[in-house]
Structures are given as C-alpha cells and as structure tokens.
C-alpha cells in the first residue's frame, strides 16, 4: 500500500514533531545551566549527581520502583486467574463480567483518584502504602487482563483439550500446559502494569501521602511551580527505564519466538 505523497510527507512531519518534547527533556537534563535556556552548549552530568544525592528525589525514585513491582506482582496473577476463569463462564454473562472488570479503565483518572481517596479515607488508609499499591493494581489490572486474554488462543484451547483427553485433571492442565505456554503473555502484561504504575501521575497525586510520594508526584509539584532541571533528569531516567524495559522484553520475546517456533507470543 502506498499513500498519496501529501499523506506520506505530512505523516513524517507529524512523526518528527511528536518526538520534539522528548528530545527537549533529554537535552535539558544534560544542560550545565540552572536556568533552562535552550539551546545550551555546555554539557554536564551535575543534575544527575544532585538527583542521586537529594533524598527527596532518590527516595521517590526508589518508591516508584517498589510500587511498580508490587502492583505488577499483584495485578498479573489476578488478571491471569480472571482470564482463565472467564472462559468457563456462560457466554451470556461473560461479556458483562469482562465489562465490569474493565471498569477502572473507563473512569477518567481524576474521578478514579478522587473515588479511591474516599475509599482510603473510609478505611483509614489515606496516604499509606496499601492505598498506593491498591490504586496502581486497579489501574493496571484492565490492561493486564486484556494482554493475558490475548494469550488464550484457540490453539492453546486445543492443546488443553488434548491434555484433558489424555487424562490430565484441570489443575495438571493448568500447571503443565496452560501456564508454560502462556508465560510470554504474562511477561508482557507485567511489563505493561509496571510501566503504567511508573508513569501514573494523576491517580498518584490523589492517593499519595508525604511518605509515599512517587517520582511523578514529586516531579509534578516542581512542574507546577518552577520546573528545574531535576524534573528533566527524573523524566529522562523514567524514559530510559520504561523504554529499556520494553526494549529488553520485546527483544527477549522476539528472540525466543524465532529460536523455537512456540505456540506464539505477544509479538
């Protein structure tokens, strides 16, 4: 398919425009000036050194990492169990249940944050860790569910039926057939939840207390007033972390797929 030349040219133009804000952030994080006047000609790593030495930033980065890992650790097993059991539900209920499970994704971020804050207040957990973890699990769950569901292909169903036909009971089928063939999808959904949690600035603003402020929340406070170069550093670090994580996972799954032509993965 070749497009009219105008479509192609404007497409490339927009694609380049799309990258400019990111290039800008990357650039600013290596600038030696404290007043962000671009373009800069002097390069330095001083803001990265400050970032590590300032507990406000480095602690927030550490918290973000923990929250993302724990949220992925909870959301993916829940999503896998949900996707597995959804198949057994009668057809006419299945789509209502699926719709209900995707509910957190349909509420806009601010409304979700506001609501979760009310729940946290009612439970006496406002501003504490369980509240943040719970919010990010909820935020990541719909995406994790959609990704894992893609792994339950007709061919997997065929293999499960074959195993059951050979006399394996449902739990043996689940452990010996379903999970081993599903794991690339589990990795993909874990990465998705991780990145969603790492980059959540909206819900976190509502549910984070002083002791649980994540990196986006700290950056947020700075951005609202005077955006210093530290925000650019935080942005570049999350950018590299997110992209790196996605890249490594994609490359890994790609490699596995070509090495052994398995039942198919997320690629």
């Amino acid at each position: 398919m070749t497009n009219p030349i105008i479509v192609r040219l404007s497409g490339w133009f927009v694609l380049i425009l799309l990258q400019i804000p990111l290039v800008m952030t990357f650039w600013a994080s290596f600038s030696a000036d404290s007043l962000l006047t671009l373009p800069t000609t002097r390069w330095s790593m001083r803001w990265y050194v400050d970032f590590i030495n300032e507990p406000q930033w480095s602690r927030a980065a550490f918290r973000s990492l923990i929250a993302a890992c724990v949220a992925a650790g909870i959301a993916v097993p829940l999503a896998t169990a949900a996707a597995w059991s959804l198949r057994e539900w009668p057809q006419r209920f299945r789509y209502y249940v699926l719709g209900a499970l995707l509910m957190p994704a349909t509420v806009s971020g601010v409304a979700l944050g506001l609501g979760l804050l009310q729940v946290a207040h009612a439970l006496g957990l406002a501003g504490q860790w369980p509240c943040l973890i719970g919010a990010h699990t909820l935020l990541g769950f719909p995406v994790a569910l959609l990704v894992v569901r893609m792994g339950f292909t007709p061919s997997l169903q065929g293999l499960e039926a074959a195993a059951a036909g050979l006399g394996a009971n449902p739990s043996v089928v689940a452990w010996r057939i379903t999970l081993p063939l599903l794991w690339p999808w589990l990795v993909a959904s874990a990465v998705a939840v991780f990145v969603i949690s790492l980059n959540d600035a909206v819900v976190a603003v509502f549910v984070c207390g002083p002791d649980t402020e994540t990196l986006p929340v700290v950056a947020w406070r700075q951005l609202r007033h005077s955006a210093g170069p530290m925000v650019a550093v935080a942005g570049t670090i999350t950018m590299v972390a997110s992209l790196g994580m996605m890249g490594v996972t994609t490359a890994g799954l790609w490699y596995l797929r070509f090495r052994k032509q398995s039942a198919g993965g997320p690629l």
């Binding site: 804000p21 990111l22 800008m24 952030t25 951005l223």
Partner: peptide, 18 residues
Amino acid sequence: LAPRLSGVIASLFGLQRL
C-alpha cells in the same frame, strides 16, 4: 508510541517548554 513509552514526566516537561 514514544510519547507513551517514555513516561509522563519527560512528556510534560518537554511540552511545557515548547
């Protein structure tokens, strides 16, 4: 997908400058 994959802080910082 870069704007999504790169994270919200980097995006907002750059957008606010531009």
